Simulated scan of single mutants.
Amino acid sequence: MSELTAGTITTLEVSHKAPFGYFLTDGNQEVLLHEHDVTEPLNEKDKLTVFLYHDHQQRIAATMTIPTVRFDAFDWATAVSQHKKYGVFLDIGTSKDLLLSKDDLPYESIYWPQPGERVFCSLKLDKKKRLFARLADEQIMQTQSVPAPETMQNKTIQATVYRQLEDGIHVISEEGYLGFVHNNEQSGTLRIGQVITCRVIAVKENGSLNLSMKPRTYERINDNAAKILTYMNSRDGAMPYWDKSLPEDIKKRFGLSKGDFKKALGQLMKENLLYQKEGWSYLTKDQKADQEHHS
């Protein structure tokens, strides 16, 4: 008969009651079903389907709670605590938390999941047959995803970080869309398991998304600059005004002093949204596209 192994689901028979639970047997080996892992009244000779794990003394123990995270099944598990020496402990529904080893996490702990955040994982054994969490790789996440429709362009979504690369992060949205946030489009330090709010800046042919956490142009600029952009957009991206226009012309068209008008133009040029040439101001190509998406 094969050896009982942590992480497996098996059927065992109740051998006898103990002060702190029940001993179960496969006819060859006995394991403890601790009283806090018992979910219904038991009698000797009852046959039970149980999940096997290592207790705090690293002995094989049993629980009647069958987790959805298994060797052959991935699911979301919630981070319970961080230990810099070991990694992150996860709640998979059993009485003993599962370790996601620091060897499978980014080198710096600031990128590790914080308590309450979730990771998509299954189970694995190390060489000593100890049970650990296995993070889902790109291939697994592909099987969990659905292609995003083109109508997602410029929409705002919630997504969970599941992978970090040198040039950016990979996320999966609540709807199951896969996305990528380049370093240039990120805000702050992002962790595995963190839920972020971002907007869709491109829907790729394969249905994955390019995302940005940065605000839209009209959210970055002040009211005066927005007024100028709106006017220019109504004129196909060009206007016969620049920073040397007469104060009375500026006041009549925009209701702004020349000083405020020049500040607004300066902000738009600093954001690379506008340029000036021979008495006219023009929207850059990127700004025209952004305005069209918003309109």
Rank of each mutant, 00 (worst) to 15 (best):
C121L: 04
E117P: 06
L178T: 02
I9V: 15
K84N: 14
Q158P: 00
Y107I: 13
K288Y: 01
G116H: 09
F180G: 02
L48V: 09
S257Y: 05
F51K: 00
K263H: 10
K124C: 07
E219C: 02
A79D: 03
R253G: 00
E150D: 11
E292V: 10
F89L: 13
I110Q: 14
K127N: 14
M239T: 13
T25H: 09
S81E: 15
A202M: 06
S208P: 01
E166T: 11
D137A: 08
E205W: 01
G207M: 07
A61Q: 04
K96M: 12
F120A: 03
Q58E: 12
H170G: 01
H34V: 03
E108F: 10
E205H: 08
R59N: 15
M152V: 05
G188A: 10
D137K: 10
A264F: 07
T230D: 11
F261M: 05
R235C: 07
V171M: 01
G7E: 08
V146F: 04
Q142R: 13
T63M: 04
G21D: 06
H293R: 15
I201Y: 02
K251S: 12
T151E: 15
M141N: 03
R70Y: 08
T156Q: 13
V38P: 01
T5S: 12
G259Q: 12
I250H: 01
Q287G: 11
L256D: 00
I228Y: 04
K227C: 07
G168H: 03
Y231T: 12
Q287H: 03
M239L: 14
S81R: 15
A238Y: 11
R220I: 09
I92Y: 05
K155F: 00
V181L: 15
T25D: 05
D286H: 11
A159W: 05
S212Y: 09
D137W: 03
S122V: 05
A289K: 14
D91A: 10
E174H: 10
D46Q: 10
T68H: 12
D249I: 06
D223Q: 14
T94R: 04
G116P: 06
V203T: 12
H83Y: 13
K227P: 00
S208V: 03
F89E: 10
W76G: 03
W280R: 14
A226Q: 14
K129V: 07
L105K: 05
E205R: 14
G266E: 07
L135M: 15
K129P: 00
I192M: 10
K263L: 14
L33A: 07
K85Y: 08
N272K: 15
P147S: 10
L229K: 01
G207W: 08
F51S: 03
R70E: 11
R70F: 02
K155S: 14
E174F: 00
S101R: 10
R118W: 02
T63P: 08
L99F: 10
H182Y: 07
E44D: 11
P113K: 04
R59L: 12
A6D: 01
Q139I: 11
G207H: 04
T151P: 02
K84S: 12
S81L: 11
A18S: 14
T78P: 01
N222Y: 12
F89M: 13
E271P: 00
Q186D: 06
I228F: 06
Q267W: 08
L42D: 10
N206T: 09
M64P: 02
